[in-house]
Design a protein around this nucleic acid. Structure first.
Lengths: 241, 241
DNA sequence: CGGGCCTTTGATAACATTCAAGCTTCGTGG
DNA sequence: CCACGAAGCTTGAATGTTATCAAAGGCCCG
């Protein structure tokens, strides 16, 4: 523990990818003094659309979902928050999104106003944040092609494929065979992400299972025998991307 | 004209909203020396997915589209570029998007490497760029709900409504009645934006016309008698947004 | 062991796509 | 200046995918 009773940033699992990735030792000490942790159990609401949010922060562990709703109850998930992803909008108090912990989640937080002051003098943070926003925008646009143009089957395959790829990028010995993924998402949550109904998601998952493209294990756990074969079902990748 | 043969930034129509919005006089002089203009005729390609882009820049006038394609030819538009919007990704040479001028377009450009150096020392630019990326991400996520959850009718109404609203925000005397919009988009381009076929777009536009929610004038020009009534057809706005 | 939530599966219906044809509009060249 | 052609737009009919409605089956946790 540091002087301030907080875990040391230098030991942090998301140190190399989070908003603080470019900070030096001196800057980290400032962050260590200001940061505080929040924990949310699976299913808990982290933010509610229209709420004032008085903190910003990074996902240290767990998965959360970002979604928007329409008046009549239709819901669309617009992003997934994974470890190292940043939550919040410096300079804006009201969040337009509902954020829900899909698994148990730990956040590394800062008071919003304090963070706004901090980044004014820390280009290492604001620069990294800009970079992350570019990546996030690119991911959102990739998802637009899924929602706008892909069939139900391709959408489900796209989701599984992107989770599997991320799983691999975090793992120590990357393999493309027998990749096991634990989806912390219900069929309903997947349908909200994919712009489908939960019944359609269920049907497509089971069809991919029957065809041997994926193997189903205990409903939420999936094994992918051959990643390339799954990729072939995603509708193909983008042109020259 | 300035010392450098470029139009003065202080006279620029997008001065208050573009990436340079927060710059002071000294900074503007640096930009004035470095900037150069590019013009594209309607229909011309500004960038091609996979290309190296050696410039970044702002849209001074006109409208351009950002889109992605799949191997088999399916296309999804992922953004519209309007005056003051920024094109390019400092720090990345290859663009994943195809950008096409929908009308005649003028860009205020900088060489990419030079711009990357510039913003390192100009928090007024990088800060504004971060702000703009937040807005762009929010717009992309708004669009995800259109693509994922709205009916064809609601999608078309959403597009018309958002164009109309923007038209109003630029106009000097905002009104909500008899708003006239000139769409520089073909039915096909609209369908690419909306995740529909061009036939479906055509049918929905004409249906809205028959029902008096919009008035059609020469195919590309549309008059909206009552903005509130059009808004009611968009599927309603987001909850508490 | 029971209850609640999640998931699967089936039957039906709605909506958007596809395919096809004809119609405007606009620009160009005779 | 008109005729022509190409591009863009509209409309119809048939098809197909996904949503909707309904019911039953599994799983986990108290």
């Amino acid at each position: 523990m540091s002087l301030y009773g907080n875990p040391r940033c230098s030991d942090c699992g998301i140190r190399s990818r989070a908003v603080c990735a470019r900070c030096d030792e001196v800057e980290l000490q400032i962050l260590e003094a200001a940061k505080f942790y929040r924990r949310y159990e699976a299913g808990r609401r982290i933010a509610w659309a229209g709420d004032e949010m008085n903190f910003v922060g990074s996902v240290v562990s767990g998965i959360a979902t970002i979604s928007q709703s329409m008046d009549d109850g239709r819901v669309q998930m617009v992003g997934l928050l994974l470890p190292s992803d940043f939550i919040g909008h410096p300079g804006r108090a009201i969040t337009p999104y509902t954020i829900i912990a899909a698994s148990n989640v730990t956040l590394c937080c800062f008071r919003r106003l304090q963070f706004e002051r901090l980044i004014k003098d820390m280009p290492h943070i604001s620069g990294r944040l800009l970079e992350m926003k570019f990546d996030e925008l690119e991911a959102a646009r990739q998802w637009m092609i899924v929602l706008g143009r892909k069939t139900a089957r391709e959408r489900v395959a796209s989701l599984l494929f992107s989770v599997a790829r991320r799983e691999i990028s975090f793992s120590l010995m990357p393999a493309t065979r027998n990749v096991r993924i634990d989806l912390p998402l219900t069929r309903e949550a997947m349908s909200e992400y994919l712009g489908l109904t939960l019944e359609t998601v269920s049907r497509q998952i089971n069809r991919l299972g029957r065809e041997g493209i994926i193997a189903l294990d205990k409903k939420r756990r999936i094994i992918i025998p051959d990643l390339a074969r799954l990729n072939a079902e995603t509708g193909g990748n983008l042109v020259s991307a």
